[in-house]
Nucleic acid binder design. Structure first.
Lengths: 238, 238
DNA sequence: GGCTGTTCTTTTGTATGACAATTGACGACG
DNA sequence: CGTCGTCAATTGTCATACAAAAGAACAGCC
Protein backbone atom coordinates (compact mmCIF):
# COMPACT_ATOMS: atom_id res chain seq x y z
CA UNK A 1 0.00 0.00 0.00
CA UNK A 2 2.78 2.43 -0.77
CA UNK A 3 2.28 4.05 2.57
CA UNK A 4 5.24 6.26 3.08
CA UNK A 5 5.07 8.91 0.40
CA UNK A 6 7.07 11.62 2.11
CA UNK A 7 4.21 14.10 1.84
CA UNK A 8 6.06 16.72 3.83
CA UNK A 9 9.72 17.38 3.39
CA UNK A 10 11.53 17.55 6.66
CA UNK A 11 9.22 19.30 9.07
CA UNK A 12 7.70 17.58 12.02
CA UNK A 13 5.56 14.52 11.74
CA UNK A 14 2.50 16.18 13.15
CA UNK A 15 2.37 18.81 10.42
CA UNK A 16 2.90 16.16 7.82
CA UNK A 17 -0.02 14.15 9.15
CA UNK A 18 -2.18 17.28 9.29
CA UNK A 19 -1.36 17.96 5.67
CA UNK A 20 -2.17 14.47 4.55
CA UNK A 21 -5.50 14.40 6.35
CA UNK A 22 -6.34 17.90 5.21
CA UNK A 23 -5.68 17.02 1.60
CA UNK A 24 -7.72 13.85 1.88
CA UNK A 25 -10.67 15.84 3.14
CA UNK A 26 -10.32 18.64 0.60
CA UNK A 27 -10.01 16.06 -2.15
CA UNK A 28 -13.37 14.68 -1.09
CA UNK A 29 -11.84 11.33 -0.29
CA UNK A 30 -13.65 11.61 3.02
CA UNK A 31 -16.86 13.43 2.15
CA UNK A 32 -18.65 15.85 4.48
CA UNK A 33 -20.84 13.93 6.89
CA UNK A 34 -18.72 10.84 6.68
CA UNK A 35 -16.76 9.67 9.68
CA UNK A 36 -13.02 10.15 9.86
CA UNK A 37 -11.30 6.86 10.65
CA UNK A 38 -10.87 6.28 14.35
CA UNK A 39 -7.68 7.40 15.99
CA UNK A 40 -6.52 3.83 16.26
CA UNK A 41 -7.10 3.24 12.56
CA UNK A 42 -5.25 6.42 11.63
CA UNK A 43 -2.36 5.44 13.85
CA UNK A 44 -2.01 2.21 12.02
CA UNK A 45 -2.58 3.51 8.50
CA UNK A 46 -0.21 6.43 8.94
CA UNK A 47 2.27 4.61 11.10
CA UNK A 48 2.40 7.23 13.83
CA UNK A 49 1.45 7.36 17.45
CA UNK A 50 -1.91 8.37 18.80
CA UNK A 51 -0.44 11.58 20.23
CA UNK A 52 0.56 12.71 16.77
CA UNK A 53 -2.75 11.79 15.22
CA UNK A 54 -4.65 13.63 17.91
CA UNK A 55 -2.61 16.80 17.52
CA UNK A 56 -3.24 16.72 13.79
CA UNK A 57 -6.96 16.15 14.22
CA UNK A 58 -7.13 18.96 16.75
CA UNK A 59 -5.69 21.31 14.18
CA UNK A 60 -8.24 20.23 11.61
CA UNK A 61 -10.90 20.79 14.25
CA UNK A 62 -9.56 24.29 14.77
CA UNK A 63 -10.04 24.97 11.06
CA UNK A 64 -13.59 23.69 11.19
CA UNK A 65 -12.98 20.68 8.96
CA UNK A 66 -14.03 18.02 11.44
CA UNK A 67 -16.16 17.81 14.51
CA UNK A 68 -17.42 15.20 16.90
CA UNK A 69 -17.33 14.06 20.44
CA UNK A 70 -16.39 11.25 22.73
CA UNK A 71 -17.49 7.90 21.49
CA UNK A 72 -19.09 9.34 18.34
CA UNK A 73 -15.83 9.62 16.52
CA UNK A 74 -14.89 12.53 14.31
CA UNK A 75 -16.91 13.35 11.23
CA UNK A 76 -16.09 15.70 8.40
CA UNK A 77 -18.30 18.76 8.79
CA UNK A 78 -20.38 20.20 5.93
CA UNK A 79 -18.29 22.51 3.79
CA UNK A 80 -20.26 25.49 5.06
CA UNK A 81 -18.51 25.08 8.41
CA UNK A 82 -15.01 25.08 6.96
CA UNK A 83 -12.73 28.06 7.32
CA UNK A 84 -12.39 28.33 3.59
CA UNK A 85 -10.14 31.34 3.94
CA UNK A 86 -7.64 29.63 6.19
CA UNK A 87 -4.35 29.61 4.29
CA UNK A 88 -3.80 25.93 5.01
CA UNK A 89 -7.27 24.95 3.88
CA UNK A 90 -6.85 27.00 0.75
CA UNK A 91 -3.46 25.45 0.09
CA UNK A 92 -4.91 21.96 0.43
CA UNK A 93 -7.69 22.87 -1.93
CA UNK A 94 -5.23 24.18 -4.48
CA UNK A 95 -3.07 21.11 -4.05
CA UNK A 96 -5.79 18.63 -4.83
CA UNK A 97 -8.36 20.04 -7.14
CA UNK A 98 -8.54 23.63 -8.20
CA UNK A 99 -11.23 23.80 -10.81
CA UNK A 100 -12.41 26.75 -12.83
CA UNK A 101 -15.34 27.38 -10.52
CA UNK A 102 -13.14 27.78 -7.46
CA UNK A 103 -10.89 30.16 -9.30
CA UNK A 104 -13.92 32.14 -10.36
CA UNK A 105 -15.17 32.39 -6.81
CA UNK A 106 -11.80 33.63 -5.67
CA UNK A 107 -11.83 36.29 -8.37
CA UNK A 108 -15.22 37.32 -7.05
CA UNK A 109 -13.62 37.99 -3.69
CA UNK A 110 -10.66 39.73 -5.22
CA UNK A 111 -12.95 42.03 -7.16
CA UNK A 112 -14.71 43.10 -3.99
CA UNK A 113 -11.63 43.59 -1.97
CA UNK A 114 -8.61 44.54 -3.99
CA UNK A 115 -9.88 47.77 -5.55
CA UNK A 116 -10.89 49.01 -2.14
CA UNK A 117 -7.54 47.90 -0.74
CA UNK A 118 -5.86 50.00 -3.40
CA UNK A 119 -7.92 53.00 -2.46
CA UNK A 120 -7.09 52.55 1.20
CA UNK A 121 -3.44 52.04 0.41
CA UNK A 122 -3.40 55.26 -1.60
CA UNK A 123 -4.73 57.09 1.43
CA UNK A 124 -2.85 55.37 4.24
CA UNK A 125 0.44 54.06 2.90
CA UNK A 126 3.52 55.58 4.48
CA UNK A 127 6.73 56.38 2.64
CA UNK A 128 8.31 53.00 3.36
CA UNK A 129 5.30 51.10 2.05
CA UNK A 130 5.26 53.20 -1.11
CA UNK A 131 8.93 52.57 -1.69
CA UNK A 132 8.55 48.82 -1.21
CA UNK A 133 5.66 48.77 -3.64
CA UNK A 134 7.78 50.52 -6.22
CA UNK A 135 10.60 48.07 -5.56
CA UNK A 136 8.35 45.11 -6.29
CA UNK A 137 7.21 46.77 -9.49
CA UNK A 138 10.80 47.24 -10.53
CA UNK A 139 11.49 43.57 -9.89
CA UNK A 140 8.50 42.73 -12.05
CA UNK A 141 9.77 44.93 -14.85
CA UNK A 142 13.29 43.58 -14.70
CA UNK A 143 13.96 42.06 -18.10
CA UNK A 144 16.76 39.91 -16.73
CA UNK A 145 14.71 38.24 -14.02
CA UNK A 146 13.46 34.71 -14.58
CA UNK A 147 9.82 33.69 -14.53
CA UNK A 148 9.81 32.56 -10.90
CA UNK A 149 11.25 35.86 -9.74
CA UNK A 150 8.63 37.81 -11.65
CA UNK A 151 5.85 35.71 -10.15
CA UNK A 152 7.25 36.18 -6.67
CA UNK A 153 7.41 39.92 -7.22
CA UNK A 154 3.86 39.98 -8.54
CA UNK A 155 2.54 38.15 -5.48
CA UNK A 156 4.56 40.38 -3.20
CA UNK A 157 3.19 43.45 -5.00
CA UNK A 158 -0.37 42.48 -4.20
CA UNK A 159 0.48 41.54 -0.63
CA UNK A 160 2.19 44.86 -0.04
CA UNK A 161 -0.94 46.67 -1.13
CA UNK A 162 -2.93 44.79 1.46
CA UNK A 163 -0.32 45.47 4.10
CA UNK A 164 -0.29 49.16 3.22
CA UNK A 165 -3.97 49.57 4.00
CA UNK A 166 -3.16 49.39 7.67
CA UNK A 167 -6.16 47.11 8.14
CA UNK A 168 -5.03 43.79 9.63
CA UNK A 169 -8.20 42.05 8.51
CA UNK A 170 -7.57 43.04 4.93
CA UNK A 171 -4.00 41.85 5.33
CA UNK A 172 -5.25 38.44 6.46
CA UNK A 173 -7.60 38.34 3.54
CA UNK A 174 -4.57 39.08 1.42
CA UNK A 175 -2.84 36.01 2.82
CA UNK A 176 -5.79 33.95 1.63
CA UNK A 177 -5.79 35.58 -1.77
CA UNK A 178 -2.12 34.74 -2.02
CA UNK A 179 -3.08 31.11 -2.47
CA UNK A 180 -5.38 32.02 -5.32
CA UNK A 181 -2.64 34.03 -6.96
CA UNK A 182 -0.16 31.22 -6.74
CA UNK A 183 -2.63 28.91 -8.41
CA UNK A 184 -3.37 31.43 -11.14
CA UNK A 185 0.28 31.62 -11.92
CA UNK A 186 0.62 27.88 -11.99
CA UNK A 187 -2.10 27.76 -14.61
CA UNK A 188 -0.75 30.49 -16.83
CA UNK A 189 2.86 29.61 -16.24
CA UNK A 190 3.44 28.45 -19.77
CA UNK A 191 3.94 31.97 -21.03
CA UNK A 192 7.29 33.15 -19.83
CA UNK A 193 6.73 36.87 -19.52
CA UNK A 194 3.92 38.92 -18.15
CA UNK A 195 1.89 40.55 -20.96
CA UNK A 196 2.75 44.17 -21.64
CA UNK A 197 -0.61 45.62 -20.74
CA UNK A 198 -0.75 43.74 -17.42
CA UNK A 199 2.63 45.16 -16.56
CA UNK A 200 1.37 48.61 -17.50
CA UNK A 201 -1.64 48.16 -15.26
CA UNK A 202 0.55 47.20 -12.33
CA UNK A 203 2.55 50.32 -12.98
CA UNK A 204 -0.61 52.39 -13.07
CA UNK A 205 -1.71 50.98 -9.72
CA UNK A 206 1.68 51.69 -8.22
CA UNK A 207 1.75 55.24 -9.55
CA UNK A 208 -1.76 56.00 -8.35
CA UNK A 209 -1.08 54.69 -4.86
CA UNK A 210 2.19 56.61 -4.64
CA UNK A 211 0.40 59.74 -5.80
CA UNK A 212 -2.34 59.21 -3.25
CA UNK A 213 -5.03 59.02 -5.90
CA UNK A 214 -7.42 56.57 -4.30
CA UNK A 215 -10.04 56.34 -7.00
CA UNK A 216 -7.50 56.02 -9.80
CA UNK A 217 -5.76 53.23 -7.92
CA UNK A 218 -9.00 51.35 -7.40
CA UNK A 219 -9.96 51.77 -11.04
CA UNK A 220 -6.60 50.52 -12.26
CA UNK A 221 -6.91 47.47 -10.04
CA UNK A 222 -10.38 46.80 -11.40
CA UNK A 223 -8.98 46.86 -14.89
CA UNK A 224 -6.12 44.56 -13.93
CA UNK A 225 -8.51 42.06 -12.40
CA UNK A 226 -10.75 42.09 -15.45
CA UNK A 227 -7.77 41.62 -17.70
CA UNK A 228 -6.23 38.89 -15.62
CA UNK A 229 -9.52 37.04 -15.30
CA UNK A 230 -9.75 37.04 -19.07
CA UNK A 231 -6.23 35.64 -19.36
CA UNK A 232 -7.01 32.84 -16.93
CA UNK A 233 -10.20 32.03 -18.77
CA UNK A 234 -8.27 31.65 -22.00
CA UNK A 235 -5.64 29.49 -20.36
CA UNK A 236 -8.29 27.22 -18.89
CA UNK A 237 -10.26 27.04 -22.12
CA UNK A 238 -7.26 26.49 -24.37
CA UNK B 1 -3.06 29.07 43.38
CA UNK B 2 -6.65 29.82 42.61
CA UNK B 3 -6.24 27.94 39.41
CA UNK B 4 -9.68 26.69 38.59
CA UNK B 5 -11.63 29.61 37.23
CA UNK B 6 -14.07 27.76 35.01
CA UNK B 7 -13.21 29.72 31.87
CA UNK B 8 -15.13 27.32 29.70
CA UNK B 9 -18.43 25.83 30.72
CA UNK B 10 -18.52 22.11 30.34
CA UNK B 11 -16.70 21.38 27.11
CA UNK B 12 -13.43 19.57 27.02
CA UNK B 13 -10.37 20.77 28.82
CA UNK B 14 -8.33 21.20 25.70
CA UNK B 15 -10.72 23.75 24.20
CA UNK B 16 -10.83 25.59 27.46
CA UNK B 17 -7.06 25.81 27.57
CA UNK B 18 -6.96 26.94 23.94
CA UNK B 19 -9.44 29.68 24.76
CA UNK B 20 -7.51 30.89 27.74
CA UNK B 21 -4.22 31.01 25.90
CA UNK B 22 -5.82 32.59 22.86
CA UNK B 23 -7.36 35.32 24.96
CA UNK B 24 -4.09 35.96 26.75
CA UNK B 25 -2.37 36.47 23.43
CA UNK B 26 -5.12 38.60 21.92
CA UNK B 27 -5.18 40.70 25.07
CA UNK B 28 -1.51 41.43 24.53
CA UNK B 29 -0.63 39.81 27.83
CA UNK B 30 1.97 37.90 25.85
CA UNK B 31 3.09 40.36 23.20
CA UNK B 32 4.19 39.37 19.69
CA UNK B 33 7.81 38.32 19.74
CA UNK B 34 7.68 37.29 23.36
CA UNK B 35 8.05 33.64 24.30
CA UNK B 36 5.05 31.62 25.38
CA UNK B 37 5.74 29.91 28.70
CA UNK B 38 7.25 26.48 28.30
CA UNK B 39 4.95 23.50 28.18
CA UNK B 40 6.00 22.52 31.67
CA UNK B 41 5.19 25.96 33.02
CA UNK B 42 1.80 25.97 31.34
CA UNK B 43 1.03 22.54 32.74
CA UNK B 44 1.65 23.81 36.21
CA UNK B 45 -0.04 27.19 35.88
CA UNK B 46 -3.13 25.74 34.21
CA UNK B 47 -3.22 22.55 36.20
CA UNK B 48 -3.47 20.25 33.19
CA UNK B 49 -1.29 17.63 31.62
CA UNK B 50 1.28 18.20 28.96
CA UNK B 51 -0.88 16.35 26.44
CA UNK B 52 -3.63 18.91 26.82
CA UNK B 53 -1.30 21.87 26.69
CA UNK B 54 0.32 20.58 23.55
CA UNK B 55 -2.97 20.05 21.77
CA UNK B 56 -4.00 23.59 22.66
CA UNK B 57 -0.73 25.07 21.47
CA UNK B 58 -0.99 23.11 18.24
CA UNK B 59 -4.33 24.72 17.57
CA UNK B 60 -2.91 28.16 18.19
CA UNK B 61 -0.08 27.26 15.85
CA UNK B 62 -2.65 26.31 13.23
CA UNK B 63 -4.17 29.77 13.52
CA UNK B 64 -0.81 31.40 13.10
CA UNK B 65 -0.66 32.87 16.59
CA UNK B 66 2.50 31.13 17.73
CA UNK B 67 5.50 29.56 16.14
CA UNK B 68 8.76 28.01 17.17
CA UNK B 69 10.68 24.83 17.25
CA UNK B 70 12.46 22.33 19.42
CA UNK B 71 14.51 23.89 22.14
CA UNK B 72 13.60 27.46 21.09
CA UNK B 73 10.25 27.34 22.75
CA UNK B 74 7.14 28.86 21.28
CA UNK B 75 6.96 32.57 20.60
CA UNK B 76 3.98 34.69 19.74
CA UNK B 77 4.24 35.62 16.07
CA UNK B 78 3.89 39.20 14.79
CA UNK B 79 0.25 40.11 14.31
CA UNK B 80 0.74 40.15 10.55
CA UNK B 81 1.04 36.37 10.64
CA UNK B 82 -2.20 35.84 12.55
CA UNK B 83 -5.29 34.54 10.82
CA UNK B 84 -7.24 37.58 11.83
CA UNK B 85 -10.34 36.27 10.08
CA UNK B 86 -10.40 32.98 11.93
CA UNK B 87 -13.67 32.94 13.90
CA UNK B 88 -11.89 31.87 17.08
CA UNK B 89 -9.25 34.54 16.80
CA UNK B 90 -11.92 37.12 16.15
CA UNK B 91 -13.95 35.88 19.09
CA UNK B 92 -10.94 36.16 21.38
CA UNK B 93 -10.29 39.65 20.13
CA UNK B 94 -13.88 40.63 20.79
CA UNK B 95 -13.76 39.03 24.22
CA UNK B 96 -10.76 40.97 25.42
CA UNK B 97 -10.47 44.32 23.80
CA UNK B 98 -12.69 45.48 21.01
CA UNK B 99 -11.86 49.10 20.51
CA UNK B 100 -13.37 51.58 18.11
CA UNK B 101 -10.51 51.14 15.66
CA UNK B 102 -11.07 47.39 15.31
CA UNK B 103 -14.74 47.92 14.77
CA UNK B 104 -13.95 50.49 12.12
CA UNK B 105 -11.65 48.10 10.32
CA UNK B 106 -14.33 45.46 10.32
CA UNK B 107 -16.80 47.91 8.85
CA UNK B 108 -14.26 48.58 6.16
CA UNK B 109 -14.39 44.90 5.25
CA UNK B 110 -18.15 44.78 5.47
CA UNK B 111 -18.45 47.74 3.11
CA UNK B 112 -16.34 45.98 0.52
CA UNK B 113 -18.04 42.68 0.78
CA UNK B 114 -21.65 42.89 1.87
CA UNK B 115 -23.01 45.03 -0.97
CA UNK B 116 -21.46 42.68 -3.48
CA UNK B 117 -22.78 39.71 -1.55
CA UNK B 118 -26.26 41.22 -1.83
CA UNK B 119 -25.88 41.63 -5.55
CA UNK B 120 -24.72 38.04 -5.94
CA UNK B 121 -27.50 36.79 -3.71
CA UNK B 122 -30.04 38.64 -5.82
CA UNK B 123 -28.71 36.83 -8.86
CA UNK B 124 -28.04 33.37 -7.46
CA UNK B 125 -30.39 32.74 -4.54
CA UNK B 126 -32.78 29.86 -5.02
CA UNK B 127 -36.36 29.80 -3.78
CA UNK B 128 -35.50 28.23 -0.44
CA UNK B 129 -32.84 30.80 0.30
CA UNK B 130 -35.22 33.64 -0.56
CA UNK B 131 -37.87 32.20 1.71
CA UNK B 132 -35.45 31.81 4.61
CA UNK B 133 -34.30 35.37 4.16
CA UNK B 134 -37.88 36.57 4.34
CA UNK B 135 -38.43 34.46 7.43
CA UNK B 136 -35.52 36.09 9.24
CA UNK B 137 -36.87 39.50 8.29
CA UNK B 138 -40.24 38.56 9.73
CA UNK B 139 -38.58 37.50 12.98
CA UNK B 140 -36.82 40.84 13.08
CA UNK B 141 -40.09 42.69 12.57
CA UNK B 142 -41.95 40.69 15.19
CA UNK B 143 -43.09 43.17 17.80
CA UNK B 144 -43.51 40.46 20.40
CA UNK B 145 -39.97 39.11 20.16
CA UNK B 146 -37.45 40.10 22.80
CA UNK B 147 -34.19 41.87 22.11
CA UNK B 148 -32.10 38.71 21.99
CA UNK B 149 -34.37 37.13 19.41
CA UNK B 150 -34.24 40.21 17.22
CA UNK B 151 -30.47 40.27 17.39
CA UNK B 152 -30.27 36.59 16.53
CA UNK B 153 -32.56 37.14 13.55
CA UNK B 154 -30.50 40.11 12.40
CA UNK B 155 -27.28 38.11 12.48
CA UNK B 156 -28.98 35.21 10.73
CA UNK B 157 -30.30 37.59 8.09
CA UNK B 158 -26.81 38.71 7.16
CA UNK B 159 -25.44 35.17 7.25
CA UNK B 160 -28.18 33.95 4.95
CA UNK B 161 -27.26 36.58 2.42
CA UNK B 162 -23.70 35.32 2.40
CA UNK B 163 -24.87 31.74 2.11
CA UNK B 164 -27.19 32.64 -0.76
CA UNK B 165 -24.33 33.91 -2.89
CA UNK B 166 -23.28 30.34 -3.51
CA UNK B 167 -19.69 31.38 -2.99
CA UNK B 168 -18.19 29.37 -0.13
CA UNK B 169 -15.39 31.88 0.36
CA UNK B 170 -17.88 34.66 0.87
CA UNK B 171 -19.75 32.42 3.28
CA UNK B 172 -16.59 31.94 5.32
CA UNK B 173 -16.01 35.65 5.29
CA UNK B 174 -19.54 35.94 6.59
CA UNK B 175 -18.68 33.71 9.52
CA UNK B 176 -15.91 36.13 10.39
CA UNK B 177 -18.18 39.13 10.04
CA UNK B 178 -20.60 37.41 12.35
CA UNK B 179 -18.19 38.10 15.21
CA UNK B 180 -18.16 41.78 14.33
CA UNK B 181 -21.93 41.86 14.23
CA UNK B 182 -22.25 40.27 17.63
CA UNK B 183 -19.91 42.85 19.07
CA UNK B 184 -21.79 45.69 17.43
CA UNK B 185 -24.96 44.48 19.04
CA UNK B 186 -23.31 44.20 22.41
CA UNK B 187 -22.33 47.84 22.15
CA UNK B 188 -25.69 49.18 21.05
CA UNK B 189 -27.65 46.77 23.15
CA UNK B 190 -29.01 49.42 25.46
CA UNK B 191 -31.73 50.41 23.04
CA UNK B 192 -34.34 47.71 23.10
CA UNK B 193 -35.67 47.89 19.58
CA UNK B 194 -34.05 48.26 16.24
CA UNK B 195 -34.56 51.77 14.85
CA UNK B 196 -37.37 52.08 12.32
CA UNK B 197 -35.20 53.10 9.41
CA UNK B 198 -32.75 50.25 9.94
CA UNK B 199 -35.63 47.85 9.89
CA UNK B 200 -36.86 49.47 6.69
CA UNK B 201 -33.44 49.08 5.12
CA UNK B 202 -33.35 45.41 6.00
CA UNK B 203 -36.72 45.05 4.35
CA UNK B 204 -35.48 46.87 1.27
CA UNK B 205 -32.53 44.51 1.02
CA UNK B 206 -34.76 41.49 1.38
CA UNK B 207 -37.20 42.77 -1.22
CA UNK B 208 -34.50 43.59 -3.72
CA UNK B 209 -32.85 40.21 -3.36
CA UNK B 210 -36.17 38.42 -3.71
CA UNK B 211 -36.95 40.48 -6.79
CA UNK B 212 -33.54 39.68 -8.25
CA UNK B 213 -32.58 43.34 -8.43
CA UNK B 214 -28.86 43.09 -7.84
CA UNK B 215 -27.90 46.72 -7.93
CA UNK B 216 -30.81 47.81 -5.75
CA UNK B 217 -29.90 45.18 -3.18
CA UNK B 218 -26.30 46.32 -3.11
CA UNK B 219 -27.32 49.93 -2.77
CA UNK B 220 -29.70 49.18 0.09
CA UNK B 221 -26.96 47.31 1.90
CA UNK B 222 -24.60 50.23 1.41
CA UNK B 223 -27.15 52.51 2.99
CA UNK B 224 -27.67 50.10 5.88
CA UNK B 225 -23.97 49.92 6.55
CA UNK B 226 -23.59 53.68 6.49
CA UNK B 227 -26.53 54.04 8.83
CA UNK B 228 -25.38 51.35 11.19
CA UNK B 229 -21.85 52.68 11.29
CA UNK B 230 -23.27 56.00 12.33
CA UNK B 231 -25.29 54.39 15.09
CA UNK B 232 -22.24 52.59 16.42
CA UNK B 233 -20.22 55.77 16.31
CA UNK B 234 -22.81 57.53 18.42
CA UNK B 235 -22.99 54.66 20.89
CA UNK B 236 -19.22 54.65 21.28
CA UNK B 237 -18.99 58.41 21.60
CA UNK B 238 -21.92 58.79 23.99
C1' DG C 1 -43.64 -10.80 22.54
C1' DG C 2 -42.35 -6.10 23.19
C1' DC C 3 -40.50 -2.58 26.05
C1' DT C 4 -37.24 -0.97 29.34
C1' DG C 5 -33.37 -0.89 32.26
C1' DT C 6 -28.70 -2.26 32.84
C1' DT C 7 -24.33 -3.63 31.58
C1' DC C 8 -20.76 -3.69 28.26
C1' DT C 9 -17.91 -2.30 24.70
C1' DT C 10 -15.99 1.09 21.87
C1' DT C 11 -13.96 5.54 21.23
C1' DT C 12 -12.38 9.82 22.62
C1' DG C 13 -10.43 12.74 26.64
C1' DT C 14 -6.75 13.19 29.86
C1' DA C 15 -2.73 11.98 32.48
C1' DT C 16 1.94 10.06 33.05
C1' DG C 17 6.42 8.61 31.98
C1' DA C 18 9.96 7.85 28.79
C1' DC C 19 13.20 8.68 25.15
C1' DA C 20 14.91 11.14 20.78
C1' DA C 21 16.33 15.26 18.52
C1' DT C 22 17.74 19.80 18.43
C1' DT C 23 20.07 23.83 19.80
C1' DG C 24 21.60 27.52 22.89
C1' DA C 25 24.88 28.10 26.65
C1' DC C 26 28.64 27.28 29.24
C1' DG C 27 33.07 25.65 30.10
C1' DA C 28 37.48 23.61 28.54
C1' DC C 29 41.39 23.77 25.80
C1' DG C 30 44.62 25.52 22.43
C1' DC D 1 41.12 35.40 23.83
C1' DG D 2 38.94 32.54 20.44
C1' DT D 3 37.17 28.16 19.06
C1' DC D 4 35.19 23.84 19.91
C1' DG D 5 32.92 20.22 22.48
C1' DT D 6 29.81 18.85 26.01
C1' DC D 7 25.69 19.65 28.65
C1' DA D 8 21.20 20.82 29.59
C1' DA D 9 16.73 22.48 28.54
C1' DT D 10 12.82 22.14 25.57
C1' DT D 11 9.99 20.39 22.15
C1' DG D 12 8.78 16.08 19.24
C1' DT D 13 7.22 11.50 19.45
C1' DC D 14 5.87 7.25 21.49
C1' DA D 15 3.65 3.85 24.67
C1' DT D 16 0.49 2.96 28.24
C1' DA D 17 -3.12 3.54 31.45
C1' DC D 18 -7.42 5.03 33.11
C1' DA D 19 -11.82 7.93 32.98
C1' DA D 20 -15.99 9.29 30.75
C1' DA D 21 -19.58 9.07 27.52
C1' DA D 22 -22.66 6.98 24.41
C1' DG D 23 -24.42 3.58 21.52
C1' DA D 24 -25.23 -1.60 21.49
C1' DA D 25 -26.48 -5.80 23.21
C1' DC D 26 -28.59 -8.42 26.58
C1' DA D 27 -31.61 -9.61 30.30
C1' DG D 28 -35.66 -8.93 32.96
C1' DC D 29 -40.35 -7.43 33.50
C1' DC D 30 -45.04 -6.40 32.10
Amino acid sequence: MGGNEKAAERVNLCSSVTDRLGRRILAGEIAPGEPVPTEAALCESLGVSRTTVREAVKRLHGKGLVDGGPRCGMRVTPTSSWNQLDPDVLAWRMAVGANAETLDQLYEIRECVEPRACALAARHADAAARAELAAELARMQDEAADSAAVIAADVAFHMRIFAATGNPFLASLGAAIRAALLLSFRITQQRQRMPRHELALHAAICDAIRAGEAEAAAEAMRRLLTESRKTIGLALAG
